[in-house]
Write a protein that binds this DNA or RNA. Sequence first.
DNA 1: CTGAAAGCGCTTACAG
DNA 2: CTGAAAGCGCTTACAG
Lengths: 346, 346
Amino acid sequence: MNKNKPTSFDIAHRAGVSQSTVSRALRNSPQVKQETIELVHRIAKELNYKVDKAASSLRSQNSATLALLLFEDPTSDDSLINPFFHAMLGSITRACASHGQDLLISFQQLSDDWHADYEDSHKADGLILLGYGDAIDYEPKLKQLAAQGTRFVRWGPQTGSDLGLVIGCDNHQGGYDATAHLLSLGHRRIAFIGTASNHYPEFFQRYQGYVQAQVQHGVAIDPTLQQDAITNEEAGFQATLDLLDRVSGLDAIFAASDLIAIGAIQALKSRGLKVPNDVAVVGFDDIQIARYSSPPLTTVRQDTGLAGKVLVETLLSLIKGDEVAAPTIPTQLIIRRSCHTPDDGQ
Amino acid sequence: MNKNKPTSFDIAHRAGVSQSTVSRALRNSPQVKQETIELVHRIAKELNYKVDKAASSLRSQNSATLALLLFEDPTSDDSLINPFFHAMLGSITRACASHGQDLLISFQQLSDDWHADYEDSHKADGLILLGYGDAIDYEPKLKQLAAQGTRFVRWGPQTGSDLGLVIGCDNHQGGYDATAHLLSLGHRRIAFIGTASNHYPEFFQRYQGYVQAQVQHGVAIDPTLQQDAITNEEAGFQATLDLLDRVSGLDAIFAASDLIAIGAIQALKSRGLKVPNDVAVVGFDDIQIARYSSPPLTTVRQDTGLAGKVLVETLLSLIKGDEVAAPTIPTQLIIRRSCHTPDDGQ
DNA sequence: CTGAAAGCGCTTACAG
DNA sequence: CTGAAAGCGCTTACAG
């Protein structure tokens, strides 16, 4: 079947033109007569001809392929993927398709040589990095990539002194909005669950938004209301239990991610506390599960559809050598039933 | 940076051997002296050399790449991916990595020419098809792939007269186990929610297991207890409301997928029915959400870890030209709180 | 607007 | 165990 795969020479022969002209015509070169272009395309279709990607990449030194590298904390169960990544994956896939790029996907270990694996081998023209993990562990890797001249974009926290091009949402604003919403509902003892340090800068930015909202509303910050957790349900569950053992009078939780929030809700229920009647909960991400948790989760949506598009387009600009900026993706507060709304009598 | 990418000639020069020998040494050919192999590898490492994938693919006519094509019903919201696919994706990714294969990923429309897109262009040596959708719509596509000699494997229902190589779980047994479990808890009015026809053969197989279990337990089949639904929460929600309007005395639901089950639970709650006290619910898949639904969902687990490995390894055998069989992946009943267990006093 | 020719960086017979 | 040579199927100067 594949033995007789047609080449551009076959088309040239049938069309009565040279192979060079076929090559140009297939890419709709303005140099080629419209008539010839149409003829070549017609014959190509008849023969089921497709440009050989390997030959094209080799000659043009351009793979028209991007690589998406996913990574998580090495401690996390590696059969699970953060649902937030899935949404990003869908969006990145579509953006690649619309730009004629193929997408390689891989789960990476911190120990691997990402540059070598993808750029040196010409498998991909650039990398998209996606992951939650300890930013401190991760930093040397980024430095190495930058030093190697790897073209990459990364989803993450924008700090102003970023290694490489970082595209992220407005974590601070999102944290502010979530907290302001809880304050507007009358809550005053609002916990923050999530590791708020430079190890998890996205969470830290959300925490800072949480602090700012309270300061602006004249609520004193009680540092004992912050409890560390990485982004999975287990961690959220355990952190909430620890928090409940430590503090009193809690009336709301702002969880640094939806996964943490879902664990928190389970923990609250396990202690006989009702959500939102006893404790309101707000998450972050708006993953698919958020709508189907019980109660449905109020959360801060990250626009994954836009994010994927921006990641891909920014990377393509970078590869082309254009000047590129790193836009910030806005967030949006999505109100559901995990906290009372003013007009919600429940 | 990439301008001076080293080639096998650079290594040859430094090592004082020919380029052919370098090429052999890099692939650890038994023809090459161990000493030479080691020398070549050492120099390659020093130079950060990586075999150029395009050149290698072009010459060897082998891309060492598989393509994963995902598709869903065109009607479904295309920003969502069935969580079951995510688990498969993780598993397939890992299996590819362990076999030295790159993985291209794409969301496909039924209208696209999958063979041309991947095999004719030498982007991939074979395809993995993953998707839920109407099997009848899908069939002409499979016939076309088979006719074109495309090497592909597919996750789906094994019917005995499959187009191409189909790997799937034991849907019938899974349906039987779920239903037998409900029967053992004393339920007698068990609904099946999911389209049970040749349009959705996996669901149909699960339905047949459901029927068989009841027959064996001497329970008469009431066809009005079956309600169509495709695999998403919306459909499950709506189907359950319709069912509740139509039939009386319902004491359990076997949903053809977890997404349907989650929609069903929402619907039951919206009618003031308690799960499992008023109506028990069992799902199918054991997606991640199942553990965090409220109540946690009893379901039939498909072993996605094994499935991904088997898909990849079967496809690689097919590409190599080996004789291949299509194994069936076993299922496992996972008991949680969405139906009473005999020793669960709740 | 088109063609002849070179060459991308490998792998693989072929010869020794 | 190693080397010289051909060639995978394109793209792209170069020449007209």
